[in-house]
């Protein structure tokens, strides 16, 4: 465990040094993420210019929800996205050999090689949106509420990570995983919607079957309406469940991996 922490710190140091070498790139990508977050907030703002409630959620409740969804996604982008995105390409080119030869757990090594400081920087912006919305809602959460919120966001991060690992592991079967990441982004669009907006088949599919809605709704509800054991228990259960599925799919896929290098 400690050795893996040391490896991760070395990778993080390498990523920061690399970012400092390509400062222009860092600025452009920070702006990219910032702009896309602004686009989502603008959508909320425009809708609430014409209505007072969406599925029973007020404007700032909705912004807190969207802020939470963005916070989880920024953490994913910052900590895991580049590494997992490259995993799909590396499986196709045979460069995945490199990870098999490294001194650590293969999934850990393949997921944490690169950090994206731009994603982490924008997590501060997403956090700012959550704080601003909480202020507008006149919420005064205690330390325990904040700790619970952070814990639930981390559970959400585990779920997002698991979905991405499962998506990118498709490369072991399909060889080319190009475009699969688009599926991940499409599914996470649902996490910016309130649970109460879903009806019928959509409710069954996106609220109960896929964890895309609960990841953001559970922490947002917890901070707005207070602790709810059912929500917390559900979130922990699906985080463990989906993480287990991700590990299973990854290692099943790994068995099919045949190096493409000479």
């Amino acid at each position: 465990m400690l050795r893996h922490l040391e490896i991760w710190l070395a990778c993080a140091r390498y990523s920061v040094v690399r970012t400092l070498m390509f400062r222009g790139d860092f600025i452009v990508w920070s702006l990219v993420e910032f702009f896309w977050m602004s686009v989502n907030l603008l959508l909320i703002s425009v809708i609430y210019d014409h209505t007072t409630s969406v599925a029973g959620w007020s404007k700032y409740e909705m912004m807190l929800l969207v802020g939470t969804a963005m916070l989880i996604q920024r953490f994913l982008m910052g900590f895991f996205w580049s590494s997992l995105f490259e995993m799909g390409r590396n499986v196709r080119t045979g460069n995945f050999d490199f990870f098999l030869a490294q001194p650590g757990n293969i999934l850990f090594m393949a997921s944490t090689r690169k950090l994206d400081p731009d994603g982490l920087l924008n997590s501060l912006v997403a956090g700012g949106v959550v704080l601003y919305s909480a202020h507008k809602l006149d919420l005064h959460p205690g330390l325990a509420d904040v700790a619970l919120y952070v814990f639930m966001v981390l559970c959400g991060l585990v779920i997002h990570y698991s979905i991405l690992v499962i998506s990118m592991s498709a490369a072991f079967w399909l060889t080319s995983a190009q475009g699969i990441e688009g599926g991940y982004f499409t599914l996470t669009e649902f996490s910016r919607l309130p649970r109460e907006a879903f009806r019928g088949v959509a409710r069954f599919l996106f609220v109960w079957l896929l964890p895309t809605v609960v990841v953001s709704n559970a922490p947002a509800q917890a901070i707005i309406h207070g602790f709810n054991l059912r929500w917390v228990g559900w979130l922990i259960a699906i985080a463990i469940g989906w993480f287990g599925v991700a590990i299973f799919v990854f290692y099943r896929g790994l068995r099919r991996y045949t190096s493409a290098s000479s």
């Binding site: 809708i47 014409h50 209505t51 007072t52 409630s53 969406v54 599925a55 499409t186 599914l187 669009e189 649902f190 910016r192 919607l193 309130p194 109460e196 907006a197 879903f198 959509a202």
Partner: peptide, 16 residues
């Protein structure tokens, strides 16, 4: 799926 998001979001907005 994107269309589903649009239908759910705007459907909920028009409910009010």
């Amino acid at each position: 799926f994107h269309l589903a998001v649009v239908f759910i979001l705007w459907g909920a907005a028009f409910a009010a």
